[in-house]
Design a protein around this nucleic acid. Structure first.
Length: 871
RNA sequence: GCGGGCGUGGCGGAAUGGUAGACGCAGCGGACUUAAAAUCCGCAGGCCUUGGCCGUGAGGGUUCGAGUCCCUCCGCCCGUACCA
């Protein structure tokens, strides 16, 4: 018998699919539409095993939905702008464009080798001018509608490299390459006013529009938007050289106002900056904070520190003068950048108060237990039972708070707001953690802003007939110089233009757009790509929203929130009826691999290592190798495998199959060679089983009604497998679908293919082939052809389970005594509870276990279990 | 720090509150072979002498019954706004 040979079969069937235009989406036609999309890849050089997992999942869905009769759109493209292309140009010479398109070519051929059911006719890269011209048009439309504006913002500035740094490029407050302390610099940049949509973005998480999203992703977005109800109020200031009369603060805990012991402002708050200009101590502190990382984690994890400012603020209720500090844990971007601190009921405030000897005034008596004898005191309080001291941030009863005394915290909150509003000091307000989306990037390899900056007219849109604003040709050597080449002489001719409004000398905006903009509407462009506008509404809405979106959890917040926001803006501009882009979302886990180190502690690639049992050795030399932790694949630890060499070894089907077989798709999966071998073995076993039924689909009809028990059992197994695998695919339980395929293949052992058995075998083998097809599409075609199936397996209709064959005529029920399994009984599935109870109590093992005991209760769960309670 | 996730045999993992360990990997035994590879068949959570006992990160709780629900704790991973 001929063994299955993926190396010859896979290219053969890929060609057959191509020629039949099997996976082309049809805009016209009466079939229901289904849009399945995986997050498009960044063209980094070659495909990663993580891509294989992602696209294998989408491919299962695409093929499954096609078989179920849908007109499927399953496109592919490239998220092609971004910093790595410039880094590559700097390090290796060449132009970012060449590097990017070269990578795309390689990765496309690699994806094709995977045999994915993709409609390649809709492919584009975001760096194609034909794509970004429409992005520039959208930007200008959004500008006209007031969704975008230009304003000042702070960035990480590397004074040596003369460039803006990403947060990840700031290490310990220093630039990653130069090592120079990073400065915070103010620049005029563009913002999408996403905060204006915060409420709708939040509401849609709960009003049913995103029912098909994982709850945890919605929770993450909810927290990210961070809506809070609170109080905005101003504390009147006194002191020398006052730049402002009062200090507006924001708090979500106005109930703790009587516990206030100081006021705090962010280090980059105008008040702090004002005193920094005259007081060296304040200046030193502000500079120190500016050097601290800008990321939220850095700020929150840093030791709580501050510096006293020469002002005090008057407490509106007590008239007490509270000291004002600049504190490193206050964020200028959140609220008003200023707070009142209540150390007794906020941990950060308490840490700070301890350090600087500030009073701690408890005003909430915790519910129940400890803390009942609290007094207003300058000492740290709220001791817990084990002697630690921590702030009580939970609910309780108000004390030492005049008009609030005796109220619960829930009652005190609105009461305090009302009183402050009455007195005219402030008002209740809603605040969001979400900030506007700054989209300007001081980089070359991105979509240019279609804006001209004129000294007289300000920001002027580039006229429509001059779009796209392309990237100027730049000599590759320019990328060796740090900073944005668009700002330098090499781009002078491109940059210096006359103002379209007044005709005077002006210059282009040299910033390019955040690459998140590129990925915020690509899914719409896949659905419809007219030449003269971003999308055609009718055509786009025929496909949108994406029914199934699949990608990494790392995009749970930013990309998905931005895409949701963009869809709303496009809706308002009349490009779609939709407000939400993705109906169902699935977030898949990462691919991990063991790490290896040689005796000297150097990382080794998996192909340099031979694993024998629990030990490992180098391939050349046989020196001992230390096996380390199983971790996310990363170049630095060399624990990466090349999907293409794996495909050479085992076949694309086996690689795809293994990626889906071992772990639930939302969880991380560990790549192992043994697993890929197992998948290849499965392919061979299927091929072998099918070979027994060669031509059977041509030579035999449907199974008859009068069959032996054995053949009936096989038919039941066949139909139960259809039912199970169908449900598993629908619910993204690919690992379980595959387990069922293994089980089914096992049940086909010793299959007879003659006489009465022929039609039953034909049915079983056809079902095996078709259920395997979404996972191993090439093998399935080979099997389909062997069985004598008509046309391509990829075009065949999905098998339907016969309901009458899904139930057995006898069920086995476990019987427990006091919750422990003591025996089992066989009963008819429709036996009454009384009958089941009777049979259970008479069963030998059960009767023995019950000897000398009194039966108190018998619980019968139909079709499940019997539990006898006895004592 | 905050937010999210995960924790079950040697390993990946199954299990609408109802037989814990389906299925796979590695392992062991057997068949085939001069031999090996490949393939096929079988065994397999742990502990005690055939029937039990113990077992789902730790500790409590709810229940006739808990891997699953509740509370407390431990460990690991991800996100944290200019990486994509």
């Amino acid at each position: 018998m001929v063994r299955y040979d993926p190396a010859s079969a896979e290219p053969k069937w890929q060609k057959a699919w191509d020629e039949a235009e099997c996976f082309k989406a049809h805009d016209e036609g009466g079939k229901p539409k289904y849009y399945v999309l995986e997050m498009f890849p960044y063209p980094s050089g070659k495909i990663h095993i993580g891509h294989v997992r992602n696209y294998a999942m989408g491919d299962v869905i695409a093929r499954f939905k096609k078989a179920q009769g849908f007109d499927v759109l399953h496109p592919m493209g490239w998220d092609a702008f971004g910093l790595p292309a410039e880094n590559a140009a700097r390090d290796n010479g060449g132009h970012p464009r060449e590097w990017t398109y070269g990578n795309i070519e390689v990765m496309k051929s690699q994806l094709k080798r995977m045999g994915l059911a993709i409609d390649w006719s809709r492919e584009f890269a975001t760096c194609d001018p034909e794509y970004y011209v429409h992005q520039q048009k959208l930007f200008l439309e959004f500008l006209k509608k007031g969704f975008v504006e230009r304003r000042e913002s702070l960035v990480n500035w590397d004074p040596v490299e003369m460039t803006v740094l990403a947060n990840e490029q700031v290490v310990d407050g220093k630039g990653w390459r130069s090592g120079a302390p990073v400065e915070k610099k103010s620049m005029s940049t563009w913002f999408f006013k996403i905060t204006e949509r915060a409420d709708d973005l939040l509401e849609a998480l709960d009003d049913g529009r995103l029912e098909g999203w994982p709850a945890h992703v919605k929770e993450m977005q909810r927290n990210w938007i961070g809506k809070s109800e609170g109080l905005k109020m101003a504390f009147p200031l006194s002191g020398s050289d006052l730049p402002q009369d009062d200090l507006p603060i924001y708090t979500t805990r106005p109930d703790t106002l009587y516990g206030a012991s100081f006021l705090g402002v962010a280090p980059d708050h105008p008040l702090a900056k004002h005193y920094a200009s005259t007081d060296p101590k304040v200046a030193a502190f502000v500079t120190e904070c500016a050097a601290q990382g800008t990321s939220e984690a850095d700020i929150e994890k840093a030791e709580k520190k501050g510096v006293r400012l020469p002002v005090t603020g008057r407490h509106p209720f007590t008239n007490e003068e509270l000291p004002v500090y600049a504190c490193n844990f206050i964020l200028m971007q959140y609220g008003t950048g200023a707070i009142f601190a209540c150390p007794a009921h906020d941990q950060r405030d308490l840490d700070f108060a301890r350090k600087y000897g500030l009073p701690v005034k408890p005003v909430i008596q915790p519910l129940g237990g400890h803390g009942t004898d609290l007094k207003a005191t300058a000492e740290p309080s709220c001791e817990t039972d084990d002697g630690r001291t921590e702030a009580h941030t939970g609910p309780g009863t108000m004390i030492h708070s005049e008009f609030l005394n005796g109220k619960s915290t829930d009652e005190a909150l609105p009461a305090a707001i009302e009183k402050i509003a009455e007195m005219g000091w402030g008002e209740g307000t809603t605040n969001y953690r979400l900030r506007d989306w700054g989209l300007s990037r001081q980089r070359y390899w991105g979509c240019p802003m279609p804006i001209i900056l004129c000294g007289d007219c300000g920001t002027v849109p580039v006229p429509d007939d001059q779009l796209p604003v392309g990237l100027p040709e730049i000599d590759p050597s320019e990328f060796k110089t740090p900073g944005n080449p668009l700002d330098r002489d090499c781009a002078k001719a491109w940059r210096e233009v006359s103002c379209p409004k007044c005709g005077k000398d002006a210059k282009r905006d040299t910033d390019t757009m955040d690459t998140f903009v590129d990925s915020s509407w690509y899914f719409a462009r896949f659905a419809s790509q007219p030449e003269d506008e971003p999308v055609d509404k009718a055509q786009a809405d025929a496909w949108l929203p994406v029914q199934q979106y699949i990608g990494g959890i790392e995009h749970a917040i930013l990309h998905l929130l931005y895409a949701r926001y963009f869809t709303r803006m496009m809706q308002e501009c009349g490009y779609t009826e939709q407000s939400e882009p993705f109906t169902n979302l699935f977030t898949q886990g990462m691919v991990t691999h063991a790490t290896y180190k040689d005796e000297a502690g150097n990382w080794l690639f998996p192909e340099e290592v031979e694993v024998r049992g629990k030990d490992a050795f180098t391939v050349d030399g046989g020196k001992p190798v230390k096996i380390g932790a199983i971790e996310k694949m990363s170049k630095s630890k060399k624990n990466v495998v090349n999907p293409m060499s794996m495909t050479d070894n085992y076949g694309a089907d086996a690689v795809r199959f293994f990626m889906l077989s071992d772990s639930p798709p939302e969880r991380d999966v560990e790549w192992t060679e043994a697993g890929a071998e197992g998948a290849a073995r499965f392919a061979n076993r299927v091929h072998e089983a099918i070979a027994k039924g060669e031509g059977l689909l041509r030579s035999t009809g449907a199974p008859g009604a009068d069959l032996s028990d054995e053949l009936m059992a096989l038919r039941r197994k066949t139909h139960k497998t259809i039912d199970g695998v169908t449900g598993d695919i629908e619910h993204f339980r690919f690992n379980k679908a595959i387990a069922r395929l293994y089980e089914f293949l096992g049940a086909l052992k010793g299959l007879k293919t003659d006489g009465d058995a022929a039609p039953v075998a034909a049915e079983a083998l056809r079902v095996l082939t078709q259920l395997t097809a979404p996972f191993m599409p090439h093998l399935a075609e080979e099997c389909w052809a062997m069985l004598g199936g008509e046309g391509l397996c990829a075009d065949a209709a999905w098998p339907k389970a016969d309901e009458s064959l899904l139930e057995d005529d006898v069920v086995t029920l476990p019987v427990q005594v006091n919750g422990k399994r003591r025996g089992e009984i066989k009963v008819s599935p429709d036996a009454s509870q009384d009958e089941v109870q009777k049979i259970a109590l008479e069963q030998d093992d059960i009767a023995r276990s019950l000897e000398g005991k009194t039966i108190r209760k018998v619980i019968v769960v139909p079709g499940r279990i019997v539990n006898v309670v006895a004592g």
